[in-house]
Computed example of a mutant assay.
Amino acid sequence: MATERTDPLTVEVVELIGDVVARYYTEYEQAAAKHSLTGVQARVLGLLATEPTPMRRIAQKLRCEPSNITGIVDRLEARGLVERRPDPYDRRVKIAAATEEGMGTARRLRESLDFAREPLAQLTDEERRGLRDLLRRMLGAGAPAVP
């Protein structure tokens, strides 16, 4: 039997998820501002610090229009945090990549995000894995094969 969507437990879980998301975004925006970045600029920089990424894929990951990403990357590039490179497999495609300065900024930004790290530190490894698996399941990604 499916859980009624308005039962008190579901309502409380939805509200708690909303509170977590709101607190995360508030802290993320504050941390980004300390680096003179907007929240979305910080997210793009964080993504590019992980791996160089085609502009279209950045837009897909952030669920926005590619033209918006162009402006964001323009501003990050003007600050020396990001550079554009031609895709070695398709020269019509531009790949954005974090520069060395951008990598350092992304690292410092990540290190300054205490909201998620501190509460998670109170959980055991098993609890964190369980939470991760539940979140992935909620998002339709399934649980990973490796614990």
Score class of each variant (00 low, 15 high):
residue 60 Q to C: 00
residue 20 V to H: 11
residue 95 I to W: 05
residue 124 T to D: 08
residue 48 L to G: 00
residue 137 R to D: 13
residue 2 A to N: 12
residue 118 E to I: 11
residue 64 C to I: 15
residue 62 L to M: 11
residue 145 A to G: 08
residue 20 V to C: 08
residue 88 P to F: 07
residue 113 L to S: 09
residue 15 E to N: 14
residue 59 A to W: 07
residue 44 V to A: 11
residue 28 Y to D: 01
residue 3 T to V: 15
residue 61 K to W: 00
residue 105 T to D: 02
residue 107 R to V: 10
residue 146 V to S: 11
residue 79 R to N: 07
residue 91 R to I: 13
residue 137 R to K: 09
residue 25 Y to W: 12
residue 46 G to R: 03
residue 7 D to T: 08
residue 27 E to H: 14
residue 81 L to H: 04
residue 48 L to V: 01
residue 140 G to C: 09
residue 38 T to P: 01
residue 100 E to I: 05
residue 131 L to W: 12
residue 70 T to M: 06
residue 117 R to H: 15
residue 103 M to R: 12
residue 22 A to E: 14
residue 108 R to E: 15
residue 14 V to Y: 10
residue 140 G to K: 12
residue 114 D to I: 01
residue 64 C to S: 10
residue 45 L to G: 02
residue 106 A to R: 09
residue 13 V to M: 15
residue 7 D to A: 09
residue 8 P to D: 09
residue 134 L to A: 15
residue 45 L to Q: 09
residue 41 Q to P: 06
residue 37 L to N: 04
residue 82 V to S: 02
residue 114 D to P: 00
residue 103 M to P: 00
residue 13 V to E: 10
residue 71 G to R: 11
residue 102 G to M: 01
residue 58 I to P: 07
residue 18 G to V: 06
residue 110 R to Q: 15
residue 57 R to M: 04
residue 77 E to I: 00
residue 25 Y to Q: 11
residue 53 T to L: 10
residue 46 G to H: 02
residue 2 A to F: 08
residue 24 Y to A: 07
residue 20 V to I: 13
residue 139 L to Y: 04
residue 147 P to E: 12
residue 6 T to C: 03
residue 86 P to G: 12
residue 134 L to Q: 13
residue 44 V to W: 10
residue 44 V to Y: 11
residue 135 L to E: 10
residue 23 R to V: 08
residue 3 T to A: 14
residue 40 V to F: 01
residue 13 V to S: 11
residue 47 L to H: 12
residue 113 L to R: 10
residue 135 L to T: 14
residue 58 I to C: 09
residue 39 G to K: 00
residue 118 E to M: 08
residue 136 R to T: 05
residue 91 R to A: 15
residue 49 A to C: 04
residue 18 G to T: 10
residue 95 I to E: 04
residue 3 T to H: 13
residue 142 G to T: 04
residue 140 G to P: 09
residue 88 P to V: 13
residue 101 E to S: 10
residue 115 F to Y: 15
residue 68 N to A: 11
residue 18 G to M: 06
residue 69 I to E: 02
residue 122 Q to L: 14
residue 77 E to W: 00
residue 61 K to Q: 04
residue 68 N to P: 02
residue 76 L to P: 08
residue 58 I to R: 08
residue 67 S to P: 01
residue 25 Y to V: 05
residue 10 T to R: 15
residue 40 V to M: 02
residue 49 A to M: 03
residue 16 L to P: 00
residue 138 M to C: 02
residue 119 P to A: 07
residue 133 D to G: 07
residue 103 M to L: 06
residue 129 R to H: 05
residue 3 T to Q: 14
residue 89 Y to F: 14
residue 88 P to K: 05
residue 59 A to P: 12
residue 92 R to K: 14
residue 112 S to C: 07
residue 143 A to Q: 08
residue 142 G to V: 03
residue 44 V to I: 13
residue 28 Y to V: 01
residue 93 V to D: 10
residue 80 G to W: 07
residue 37 L to A: 03
residue 31 A to C: 13
residue 49 A to E: 04
residue 98 A to E: 01
residue 93 V to H: 07
residue 138 M to F: 06
residue 33 A to I: 06
residue 1 M to S: 11
residue 92 R to N: 14
residue 63 R to C: 00
residue 16 L to C: 05
residue 105 T to A: 13
residue 29 E to P: 02
residue 117 R to P: 07
residue 139 L to N: 05
residue 36 S to T: 14
residue 13 V to Q: 13
residue 59 A to L: 06
residue 78 A to M: 01
residue 133 D to M: 03
residue 125 D to L: 06
residue 114 D to G: 14
residue 74 D to W: 09
residue 23 R to F: 06
residue 55 M to N: 07
residue 127 E to N: 08
